[in-house]
């Protein structure tokens, strides 16, 4: 069976809606950072906890590294979001999204008895929204839609 015939109409619709919503979330997170004056991930990284915390706080010691980290967050999030919404190069966007979400999760794991200065807006134990979104993207990777609805349909068209 060819890939594009795999889903029912409603399956396809809801998968695309999920992809677009995650894309929206990413893109606005990126744009908000770009628009905020002097935005920096410094404070967030300084607030890192858990076993990888020393690695994340180490990044903040080097201004050059911080400039890169900030650019990756601002433009990476925006571009990934844009790709997911438009459905172009989604395969790469997914990998990028999983990469960023893993870093967010590992830098701020929702452990018991861990107190973050930036308080999460909900109550979490081990599982948080970053982890759920990460898994949602893995699911979207296994059930791709961009070659049916999205620019990938044109980009990867059979000549």
């Amino acid at each position: 069976m060819s890939e594009k015939h795999a889903y029912s109409c409603s399956q396809l619709s809801w998968l695309v809606i999920l992809r677009v919503l995650i894309g929206w979330y990413f893109m606005y997170e990126g744009l908000a950072k770009i628009m905020a004056p002097n935005w920096s991930s410094y404070a967030y990284l300084r607030d890192s906890k858990g076993i990888f915390a020393p690695l994340f706080t180490l990044l903040t010691d080097y201004p050059v590294v911080m400039t890169m980290v900030n650019a990756i967050n601002m433009y990476g999030l925006t571009v990934i979001g844009l790709c997911l919404i438009l459905g172009c190069f989604v395969k790469f966007a997914n990998i990028g999204a999983i990469g960023l979400l893993s870093l967010y999760y590992l830098s701020h794991p929702p452990l018991l008895d861990v107190h973050y200065i930036i308080r999460p807006e909900g109550s979490y134990m081990w599982v948080d929204k970053n982890l759920i979104m990460l898994v949602a993207i893995v699911v979207l990777m296994l059930f791709p839609t961009s070659k049916m609805i999205g620019l990938d349909r044109y980009i990867y068209r059979k000549k």
């Binding site: 929206w24 744009l31 999205g150 620019l151």
Partner: peptide, 17 residues
Amino acid sequence: LKTLATIPVLGAMAYGV
């Protein structure tokens, strides 16, 4: 239509921003 179906979403975001 299938290729460009999601583009209007960007319009909504542009309006919001």
